[in-house]
Simulated scan of single mutants.
Amino acid sequence: MIRTPGADVERIQTPRARVDDEPEARLRPQALDEFVGQDALKAQLEMAIRAASGRGEPLDHVLLAGPPGLGKTSLARIIARELDVRITETAGPALEDKKDIASFLTSLEPGQIFFVDEIHRLPRAVEETFYPAMEDGQLPVTLGVGPGAKVVTLDLPAFTLIGATTRAGLLTAPLRDRFGIQHRLDLYNADELAAIVVRSAGVLKVPVHMDGARAIAERSRGTPRVANRLLKRVRDYAQVEGDGSVDAATAYAALDMLEVDHEGLDRLDREILHAICVRFSGGPVGLSTLAVAVHEEQDTIEDVYEPYLLQRGFIQRTPRGRVATPHAFAHLGIEPPASGQSLF
């Protein structure tokens, strides 16, 4: 039982439960039927959950891949709720050696969910510790050092590992093949994002018109996390500059102030396109050179910005580097250079 200093009541909730009670935390869907979009994925997960529950067995290990902000963590928590089991969460970079994994795995309860975000960033030695745990429910532990060391195998309760990754190509084949359920989340369309904005506005108690929700959705880069972030900033604008409600005119004015254009591109997106189109005459340009040009980390460009620019047809990847398309030049209002001509 936890007593917060100065509190008048005793709290028996866990820290995570208290966080989940906050309105903005409740923007995450709480059940599969609340999760908007990804219909094929939801249908397959629902079938697998019902089948595992019917057999009284843990769900098979699940791998969720896709760009950031599409709902991988939300789905992991939803799976735990649907199965009525606890979930333990960590991230690949936090698991630095085998002792870290051992402390997590030995504390799991039967059927519990173990969620590892950014699982592609597991060190190789740590990753290999997962193999027997996932397949055989066993954890080899080395006791002692040198010639006198011996290996003791601990039996683990049956559990479900859910891994989330933004870069599935970096997963090794032995780890990837041990996930019985594998899904990739796709970017959302405008209708799905508008539905998410309407739901989130209800949670935040923000009056929103359907045209206002649609305006936010159109500039949300196909990503629910971006849609919710923009909704909160549009809410601020509507509160200060309007009557508190969000219609299309208010949304467009707020988004223009935020420098989010009609294609959903923000300032850094346009800087990336400008660097390729102007400094490097449309490309090709390598990722490391591009990162230096826009003062951003390579991983951030590759994981956060490039997927949307590629999906919208602004850039292409080639063996020699990134190349701007005619769509990028048109969006920036720049004439493409003649062959061999430099704009820099």
Rank of each mutant, 00 (worst) to 15 (best):
R219H: 11
H120M: 00
Y252T: 02
H274Y: 10
G92T: 06
I196C: 00
D299I: 07
S74K: 03
E22Y: 08
L343I: 08
M134S: 03
M210D: 13
L105T: 09
N189P: 06
S74T: 10
G244N: 08
H183N: 04
Y252V: 02
Y188V: 01
P224S: 06
G313R: 03
H120C: 00
H61L: 01
A125G: 10
S339Q: 12
T153W: 06
R317V: 08
Q311H: 14
D266N: 13
L255C: 02
E271T: 10
P319W: 13
V141S: 02
S339N: 09
L255P: 02
E34W: 04
R18C: 11
L143F: 09
R11E: 15
G212H: 04
Y237Q: 09
S281L: 05
H274N: 12
L83A: 10
R322F: 14
A213F: 11
I272P: 11
D299L: 12
L332I: 12
L45R: 04
D211C: 10
I181S: 01
K42D: 08
M1C: 03
G146T: 07
P58D: 12
E335D: 12
P58V: 05
I101H: 02
R55K: 14
G37P: 09
A338E: 15
S53C: 03
L170V: 01
L204I: 00
V151S: 11
R28C: 04
G321L: 11
A249N: 10
L309M: 10
E46I: 01
P15K: 12
R221F: 07
A330I: 01
V304S: 06
Q316E: 15
E96R: 00
Q316T: 09
A43G: 07
I2P: 07
A51W: 11
A133S: 11
A291Q: 09
Q298S: 15
E127T: 00
L41V: 15
A253D: 15
A190G: 06
G282L: 07
I181A: 01
V206R: 13
E302V: 07
T325W: 09
P174W: 08
R178K: 15
A91I: 02
A7K: 07
R235Y: 10
L273D: 14
K232D: 13
A238Y: 06
D186A: 01
A25K: 05
R199H: 09
A201M: 07
R121Q: 07
L170P: 06
G71K: 02
P5S: 13
S220G: 02
D97N: 12
A102L: 01
D303E: 14
M47C: 04
S281C: 08
G244M: 06
E109L: 12
R121S: 03
A94L: 15
A249R: 14
G333C: 07
L343S: 11
S288M: 15
L171W: 03
M134C: 04
K42Y: 04
R267S: 13
